[in-house]
Every structure is written in structure tokens, then in C-alpha cells.
Amino acid sequence: MDRDGRRELEVAPGAFASFRRHLEDALRTTVWGRGCTSWYKTGTGRITVNWPHRAARYRTLTRTPDPAHFREQG
């Protein structure tokens, strides 16, 4: 971003939708997806935990962002 003089990024809608599908699928296999009650679940059953995997995996996956996952900003 510094090299390009950019101050912000916006996630592309398709990339966000793909991430949400992955997240929801992964969360179904966690303790929160197997019938427990918790403040991590809304009244409709939606699980609001933001990452179901180990922190090391998050770091690996976000270390080098894919430019195709972002919209161009002016």
C-alpha cells in the first residue's frame, strides 16, 4: 500500500462471500456448531466467532494478501 500511495483497501464482494462460506462451514464442526448454548451464538443460531482455526493459520493466510481479493480504491 505504501509503494502505491494507497491509504485504504476494500474487500471485493466475491472474496468476502467466499470467506463467509468457509467460515460458516468450519464453524459447524466446532463445539459451538454442535448444539451448545453460548454467547457466541445469536438467538437464530448464527455463530459469531470470527476465526475457527489456530492463530498460526490466520497468520499464514493473511501474511501476503492476494490483490485479486480487493477492490480498487481511488
Rank of each mutant, 00 (worst) to 15 (best):
D4N: 05
G5K: 05
R6A: 01
E8M: 12
E8R: 14
V11P: 04
G14A: 09
A15T: 09
A15R: 02
F16E: 10
A17T: 07
S18W: 11
S18G: 12
R20Y: 07
R20K: 12
H22Q: 13
H22K: 11
D25F: 09
A26P: 03
L27M: 09
T29H: 08
T30N: 03
V31E: 08
W32Y: 14
G33N: 01
G33C: 02
G35W: 01
G35P: 00
C36T: 04
W39V: 08
K41C: 03
G43R: 15
G43W: 13
G43F: 13
T44S: 14
G45W: 09
R46Q: 13
I47T: 06
V49A: 11
N50G: 10
W51I: 05
W51Q: 03
W51L: 05
P52A: 00
H53S: 11
H53K: 12
H53I: 05
A56P: 04
R57W: 13
R59F: 12
T60A: 14
T60F: 08
L61V: 09
L61S: 07
L61A: 05
T62S: 12
T62A: 07
R63E: 12
T64E: 14
P65D: 01
P65M: 03
A68C: 02
A68N: 07
F70D: 00
E72Y: 09
G74K: 15
